[in-house]
């Protein structure tokens, strides 16, 4: 592993999710959690102990889980439907489309252990298609927070947002990138580091690696801008256009297939209104081999060093 992770400083964003959810649920009795036997893996044991009636476990039945969420919303509840991201978004995709997106119900979909968090368990347990699947649907904002503070902020936002959304959470440890009291704004990128030669855009667990890459680039004399783009849909087109015109090149980095994810969403804006050279890093359209999430990210060219190398190569394509 190339990234200089210091284990003591890393946080599992699920803890921030349930911490905020419990805090919100204490103040709003309509908030309920729905899960598919995933009480432990969704870290909902504390929620269950505090609000036993409001933890609705449908068993191993993801289609029913999302439908039940839509029905609870119809009945005035604010359901957070929590399950491992591959099963939530894959098995129940038609329920997400018909019962949540098309019916415009107030269902908060929470994909736990997304991306390649279940690395060694194999590609059935990877969720590297969910940006593509969910962002193709109207009415369901797609959000991938980068650290525990952004996770908590996104959960607080979701609870008061009038409509559905998809929160894509990981279990892979990440350090703090934001400060306490951070407020999530849908459709707004965060400028984490300014620079003029190239822009690196990432979200989720990749934001941390991208920031390290930017520091490495600085040592090599390259000034890289870093944008955290938690909100994949709606996406911050203004920030992308500004990055294109001010830095002339954009590299995207995501724990997702390069087909249809963050890089594609950025490229759609770029090609429409501000064509500049781009590089899209991600899983290159394959089922991943055996390895931990961090090993796989390294293998797919997303170690901080490899990200920096790709950025330098991209600079050579600038016009």
């Amino acid at each position: 592993m190339n990234a200089p992770f210091e284990t003591a400083r890393l946080h599992d964003c699920r803890d921030a999710f349930v911490g905020m959810l419990e805090e919100l649920a204490a103040a709003n009795r309509d908030i309920v959690a729905v899960c598919n036997d995933s009480v432990g893996s969704s870290k909902l044991t504390g929620f269950r102990d505090r609000f036993p009636d409001r933890l609705i476990n449908v068993g191993i039945a993801e289609q029913n889980m999302v439908g039940v969420g839509a029905g609870l919303a119809n009945g005035g509840k604010v359901p957070f439907v929590c399950a491992a991201a591959p099963f939530l978004t894959g098995r129940a995709l038609e329920q997400i489309k018909a019962d949540v997106a098309y019916s415009q119900t107030n269902v908060k979909l929470v994909g736990i252990s997304s991306g390649m968090a279940y690395g060694e368990l194999g590609a059935t347990h990877h969720s590297i298609e969910d940006f593509a699947w969910i962002r193709a649907l109207p009415n369901v904002p797609v959000i991938a927070p980068a650290d525990r503070l952004e996770t908590a902020a996104a959960v607080a936002w979701a609870a008061v947002h009038d409509g559905g959304c998809f929160l894509r959470l990981s279990r892979v440890g990440v350090p703090d990138l934001f400060t306490e009291g951070h407020v999530f704004e849908l459709g707004k990128a965060n400028l984490l580091r300014d620079g003029g030669d190239v822009t690196l855009i990432a979200n989720g667990v990749l934001t941390h690696r991208t920031l390290i890459a930017a520091a490495r680039l600085a040592a090599r004399g390259v000034s890289a801008r870093v944008l955290n783009m938690a909100s994949v849909r709606p996406i911050d087109a203004d920030a992308i256009r500004a990055a294109a015109s001010e830095t002339g090149a954009i590299l995207t980095c995501e724990e997702h297939t390069i087909f249809g994810g963050l890089g594609s969403a950025v490229a759609e804006v770029v090609v429409d209104s501000c064509p500049v050279p781009m590089t899209r890093l991600g899983v290159p359209g394959v089922f991943a081999h055996t390895g931990s999430a961090n090993q796989l990210l390294d293998d797919f060219g997303m170690s901080p060093e490899a990200i920096a190398d790709s950025a330098v190569a991209l600079l050579g394509r600038k016009v």
Partner: peptide, 18 residues
């Protein structure tokens, strides 16, 4: 609720009743 694909109404109704 919007229906059309089959097998959607009953899960949603379970959520309503709950």
């Amino acid at each position: 609720t919007n229906t059309g694909p089959l097998g959607h109404g009953l899960p949603v109704a379970v959520g309503m009743a709950k």
